[in-house]
Design a binder for these strands. Structure first.
Lengths: 194, 194, 194, 194
DNA sequence: CCCTAACCGAGACGGTACGTCGTGTCTTCTG
DNA sequence: CAGAAGACACGACGTACCGTCTCGGTTAGGG
């Protein structure tokens, strides 16, 4: 009801500053000293809140905006997935967020705390949202009763991450459509499946 | 024809030392100083050969062994893919190689040189090998003429990397089988696709 | 008239704590934070009373005890001086007071406030006491009318401080006797002075 | 014969810089960071040579000049002592050297390394020089055979240090003369000594 | 006897400096 | 004469205190 508490102000100032700097020089060259200096804050004030650069960065990235990646429900599961995948590709594979997200995942590879926090705060909610939408579709009969929702999610997500992190090929709308078509129309090895 | 040249010895000594140290303390805590000291080599001798820690590490990891991930051809494309995917999962997602491979990919996220070298020296050959095997299968009529080989490769690889890098769920034989079944038996959403 | 006021209690608690800590870790490693923490007192409560660590320390040392260095008057000026000098050497050049006193003088070298307070609160009273005793002796005819009292005091004190602060040689009873003998029997360079 | 070695240059640069800074801001506010920055040198380069600010400062002060406090020998011991004491008072009790010397002695009060080095490198040589001059005088019959040389030195030095370090009274030529007169003419307690 | 202003503990805060580590370059000296 | 050894300038680390500044929670005295 009343004004935001003093310490909260600093927390947000620091995260915003960290994000700004990360956007300017990249996560690798981000330094606690620079964040402290630009934020007009003592280093202790940062270390009191985050034990490492990695977790500050994670917090800064994940707190900075609402992802806008919630699933709509137009009644057409394929259209809805297409919509969210497109938005995700636009957001996470393009500047300014793309490099930050890549760095976050890069850091997670050798930092269990970051890996855990990233999973808990971003991957799992996003996964749960997708699975919920798929579940509704299955209940509405748009998907077969034995449709493997978990696997479907990974088949849709995996290739996108593969392109983002490994081959760095662009993730186009056409590619998303190919993926969706393969998943929902079946990728039968023979001309006439079944 | 005669004994290996002196400088080659050093190159290999350094790479082996770097690899040993990386296995002991992890890539993040690997230092050029430590490599030089343990290898009994001047730091310049390292910098003369590699421009950065990242590329030395990449070289050390990729040169250290033959991957053994070439595709067999038993005539059964699914069995052959299953075999290679299992071997890859065993090799790349488990200690001692798993963490190193993860670190390599992590480093690639903010280091274009590493990303390029990793692609060129590991990902692309591996991709080409798989695609070649798939092409043979298509020519033998095991796959439909319009079967999207590139996409198939990414649908098989993507989810494995997703689990390795993002969710850190285990990559079991059962999971590989689920993936292969989905891809080759089709994942029709409705009982009677099309 | 009634019980000591609350704030006085704190003042003494703080000084006592400062003294304890100084005895344990030395003045150089004494910190206001540590004093506050051990005294169970806020830092402001200390700063409200003393403007700096140095002046708190000075207060703590000088308030902690009565020196017991007042001059007796047995009628024998030499014996009386000998007595006081011995007591001073025992007190100020030996643990636990010696190191504290040395630190105080050390601090005074670059802190005019400490230098002034030390002079005013310890050195000058002590000097005045000695000079008063010498004056009585002169009036009693034990000393020549033109005996230079001020200089005599400095000749007695200077060498003691020289040993305490500079050469760190022990100040023995024998040394004090040598000093007194030199001063009162004369240190004639030639067999027959003048 | 050939040019000064590189590392020697840095050693001297650092000492000179430390001395300059000490003259500007005083020893208490001298910081290793500031020395390094102004000398254009990494902090490690300083720490490789001196383990602490105190020892760097000591080295800087003691190496910076020849004291010029060697004893002349005009044949008149009193005149020679007077000469050296005057020069010492001018040098050590006046800016710019006075404050530095005071700080050095101040630091020595809680730093045994500094105390030892100061004694060994400055006090003892100076003492030895004075005693040698006194010894010559005694051999020439200017001083009585039982003249206590060591004590004489301390009676001459002690009061000067007492004024410098404790009471901060000025050390005038007149004061030096009073001291010398007292020592050599005798300070008889009675009107007619002996 | 309650109210209220002063005081207090606790410790966050912006700073400064510490002493250490690793980087990539540059020197020195040796086998 | 190449290479080990390591010095070097630099930048960042994470820590310790400084002296100032909130923040609530007493606490005692005056109404």
């Amino acid at each position: 009801m009343n004004a935001r508490r003093r310490s909260d102000d600093r927390t947000e100032t620091i995260m915003r500053t960290a994000l700004d700097l990360a956007l300017e020089v990249g996560y690798a060259k981000l330094s606690m000293e620079a964040v402290a200096a630009r934020a007009g804050v003592g280093k202790d004030t940062i270390y009191r809140r985050w034990p490492s650069k990695a977790l500050l960065f994670l917090d800064a990235v994940l707190s900075s905006r609402n992802t806008g990646l919630e699933h709509p429900d137009t009644g057409d599961i394929v259209a809805d997935l297409r919509e969210v995948m497109s938005r995700a590709a636009d957001l996470l594979a393009r500047p300014p967020w793309g490099p930050l997200y890549q760095d976050l995942i890069g850091e997670a590879q050798h930092n269990p705390d970051v890996a855990a926090a990233l999973n808990q705060r971003f991957i799992q909610p996003q996964t749960a949202d997708t699975l919920a939408r798929l579940k509704v579709a299955k209940e509405q009969g748009q998907l077969a009763p034995d449709f493997d929702l978990d696997l479907a999610f990974e088949i849709l997500s995996g290739p996108l991450y593969f392109r983002l992190l490994i081959t760095q090929q662009p993730i186009t709308q056409a590619y998303i459509d190919r993926l969706l078509r393969a998943l929902f129309a079946g990728m039968a090895p023979e001309p006439h499946p079944r």
